[in-house]
Design a protein around this nucleic acid. Structure first.
Lengths: 224, 224
DNA sequence: TTTGTACTTTAGCCCCGTCTAAATTCTTCA
DNA sequence: TGAAGAATTTAGACGGGGCTAAAGTACAAA
């Protein structure tokens, strides 16, 4: 019932890759995400398979078992709740919390995490707009689309970020692109896909197509 | 500048033993406190000595160097601040927090601990009445004596506990012996050293000499 | 001064998680 | 169909941290 730090890290990595790119998850994808060597990954996969946390066929990648997915979801719950704590209570900014939450998520205590959840008033999303699973591992996906897929003049709210790199988040801060901001696409430049948008009721700003593809928005009216 | 989990645990153990029983600290004392084998302790002592965290002479015990003591104090600071957080913010009781704080104290982030300190409003004592070192490692000892050394009819306040075992703390709870309680010794039974005392303005209660030797009190007047 | 006993260290082994180098398997394309 | 090339796994090794068994050291008592 209790796993090592390394095992937990692998489970989370597999979960994340599966979420983005589907299953099965390749050895090299895990190695890349975890900054380690494929040979090391193979070793660990055997151990995880022995513990029935993953389904593993040599040369054909892995997927999480029910138990493995359960555990991964729990880790994500812990990670995101700690991020809320760091931002909401301790005053960290959203680009500073990842590293610390990576450590905190390994603290073993169900009571602790449940009480933390209550203390934070059961948040449903973390500071990056990612959903927080409940104690049973369930979470609801919010309706959201990429800003790059938002129609012209369609009012929307910024609800999440796909990219979590500090430099990206700092860039957003500098451009007043905070979660909850209302916005509307004014123009998409045909040459390179850059997007001009109105933020709240301020002056229009220009962001690259690259950035637009990293932002999740929710439309705020049902018009075309 | 950054140490492994095991190294940190050893430093803290050595610090604690030195605090209670003085220096040098024996291999077997460390082994007993850490629930490990003397042979394992010897192995680790060599490593800590190589890193100049302890002074170590074969067969003659160890003491912490300045650097080692600094690190141990920092760990204790972290441990005690986390205990405050768990009790004051998350509503844990004082007998539930030790295990969790043992894990939390290893989280590496100076910023985190400083912000936690501020968030808790820079407490000077943890839930067991133990002093919390400041960021520089300094802390002030409170004036305190053992309840077993308190004179008859001498008004005093319960300020700390020497024993941290859950069962002991729960026993105190059941007898309304909480930190901050005012008390006065009414009688010491000659037969076994049991102490009868008045707690606040309630009925007298009887505690064993054994228990009285685990409680720290501060006298509240200068009489006799 | 010697010796018995308790304490400590050494020697040698184990498991975890990682690595490099070499071998194997998969896949794709001519 | 049959390689070439990419991905993956195996083999063998290492450092961290722990254990047992055996050997060495200290110290108190005679």
């Amino acid at each position: 019932m209790t796993y090592t730090l390394a095992e937990e890290d692998y489970l989370k990595a597999i979960y994340k890759i599966a979420e983005r790119h589907g299953t099965p998850v390749s050895t090299s994808a895990i190695a890349e995400l975890m900054q380690t060597r494929p040979a090391s990954v193979t070793d660990m996969l055997k151990k995880l398979a022995d513990k029935e946390l993953i389904d593993y066929k040599r040369y054909h990648g892995v997927s999480l078992t029910r138990t493995g997915a359960r555990q991964a979801t729990l880790l994500i719950r812990k990670h995101r709740l700690w991020e809320c704590f760091l931002v909401d209570k301790l005053g960290f900014s959203w680009d500073e919390v990842h590293e610390i939450a990576e450590q905190l998520e390994h603290i073993q205590s169900d009571t602790l995490i449940d009480r933390l959840d209550d203390y934070l008033e059961n948040p449903k999303f973390d500071p990056h707009g990612d959903p927080i699973p409940d104690a049973s591992g369930a979470y609801r996906m919010r309706y959201q689309i990429l800003l790059s897929d938002l129609g012209l003049h369609q009012p929307a709210v910024l609800v999440g970020v796909r990219e979590h790199a500090s430099s990206f988040l700092q860039y957003l801060d500098q451009n007043r692109l905070a979660l909850g901001a209302t916005l509307e696409v004014i123009e998409v430049l045909p040459y390179d896909g850059s997007v001009r948008l109105r933020l709240g009721d301020g002056e229009p700003i220009l962001i690259s197509g690259q950035v637009a593809r990293q932002l999740y928005v929710r439309q705020t009216t049902e018009s075309a």
